[in-house]
Computed example of a mutant assay.
Amino acid sequence: MVIDEEMAIDADGWQARGFSFPSPRPVQVTAKGIKNTDKGFRVLLMDSAQLKNFKAKKEFRHIPSFEGLKIRSYSHTGELPAGSWVAVVMNSENIINSMVVELKIVVDPK
């Protein structure tokens, strides 16, 4: 397990968690809404170099197969190349309340 945590995300805000590995690996990303996620949230996975563009609200590239839109829960397993990666969880639908989302990222899931 690389990441296993509950994140508090401000209204219309986001949180990011990074991880890396030296060779291609299967990775499982799971996100589950805990509090105030009835309208859904968004999950993205991107190369860590893309986070700068994301923060600046510029064009950025993410891995489409690791994207969840307007979701209350999410799970996807896929192969990623070696490198540094960032999972972003966005409170994109709830502009009034903060929310809590549990994020788990597992490298080499069984």
Rank of each mutant, 00 (worst) to 15 (best):
M1Q: 10
V2P: 02
V2G: 01
I3D: 04
I3F: 03
I3T: 07
D4N: 15
M7T: 01
A8Q: 14
A8V: 14
I9F: 11
D10M: 10
G13A: 13
W14Y: 04
Q15K: 15
G18V: 03
F19T: 01
F19Y: 00
F19V: 00
S20Q: 12
S20M: 06
F21D: 06
P22G: 12
S23K: 14
S23I: 05
P24G: 13
R25M: 12
P26V: 09
T30L: 00
K32C: 08
K32F: 09
G33E: 03
I34G: 00
I34S: 04
K35G: 04
K35Y: 08
D38F: 11
K39R: 04
F41V: 02
R42W: 07
R42H: 06
V43D: 00
L44Q: 05
L44M: 11
L44T: 05
L44C: 06
L45G: 11
L45V: 15
M46E: 01
D47F: 02
D47T: 02
A49K: 14
Q50R: 03
L51A: 08
N53A: 15
N53V: 09
N53M: 13
F54V: 03
F54T: 02
F54K: 09
K55S: 00
A56S: 14
A56P: 13
K57P: 08
K58M: 06
K58L: 08
F60Q: 02
R61P: 02
I63F: 12
I63W: 10
P64I: 04
P64T: 05
S65L: 12
S65A: 14
S65V: 13
S65N: 08
S65R: 04
F66E: 10
F66S: 10
E67R: 10
G68V: 07
L69M: 07
K70W: 05
I71K: 11
R72S: 06
R72M: 03
R72P: 02
S73V: 02
Y74K: 13
Y74G: 12
S75D: 00
T77C: 05
L80P: 15
P81E: 00
G83C: 04
G83L: 06
S84M: 02
V86Q: 06
V88G: 09
V88R: 01
N91A: 05
N91S: 03
S92C: 11
S92V: 07
E93C: 13
E93R: 15
E93K: 15
I96G: 00
I96C: 03
N97S: 11
N97D: 14
S98W: 11
M99L: 08
M99A: 11
V100K: 15
V100N: 08
V101S: 12
V101G: 08
E102S: 13
E102M: 08
L103Y: 12
K104I: 00
I105D: 00
I105C: 06
V106D: 04
P109M: 05
P109C: 08
K110H: 10
K110Y: 03
K110P: 14
K110D: 12
